[in-house]
């Protein structure tokens, strides 16, 4: 077999070809594709659009405020009695839960209410006509 030597051979070309007018077309295509670096012109219309958006935002806001006020002023305020009744009759909180929630301070606060002097009790008992009734009950 004959040894192949590159330098002894006539120059071997790649054999790659291109479509007709490829390079002319490529130049034209490339020139169009280049990112334009010219300063951007902002048309009057575009500015008007911004103003329109701003105006729309103001109108929406203006309409929202009365609606907001309407809903919040009409929300019924719950009075203490209703709240107490609710807790007493509908709540799933048991007495034990309540006890657990109270700390030493709370208990001391409550005990103050019952700190009545003996004399006051005596007085109360002596002036109270229904005393017998209480005892009987």
């Amino acid at each position: 077999m004959k040894t192949f030597k590159l330098e002894n051979e006539p120059k071997i070309k790649t054999g790659f070809t291109t479509p007709e007018n490829y390079f002319d077309d490529f130049s034209a295509k490339m020139m169009q594709q280049l990112p334009k670096k010219e300063p951007k012109l902002i048309s009057l219309f575009a500015r008007k659009k911004t103003w329109m958006y701003a105006a729309a935002a103001v109108v929406v806001l203006a309409l929202t405020i009365p609606v907001y006020n309407y809903f919040y002023s009409n929300s019924p305020e719950i009075d203490d009695v209703t709240l107490e009744n609710y807790i007493t009759y509908h709540s799933t909180v048991s007495d034990e839960d309540l006890v657990n929630l109270l700390d030493e301070k709370d208990i001391q606060k409550m005990s103050v209410d019952f700190n009545i002097e003996d004399k006051t009790i005596e007085n109360e008992l002596s002036t109270n006509n229904n005393l017998e009734q209480y005892i009987l009950n």
């Binding site: 051979e9 071997i12 070309k13 790649t14 054999g15 790659f16 070809t17 291109t18 479509p19």
Partner: peptide
């Protein structure tokens, strides 16, 4: 877009 002979492909 290739116009070559055997030796070109072999290369």
């Amino acid at each position: 877009y290739f116009d070559g002979n055997e030796i070109q492909i072999k290369l």
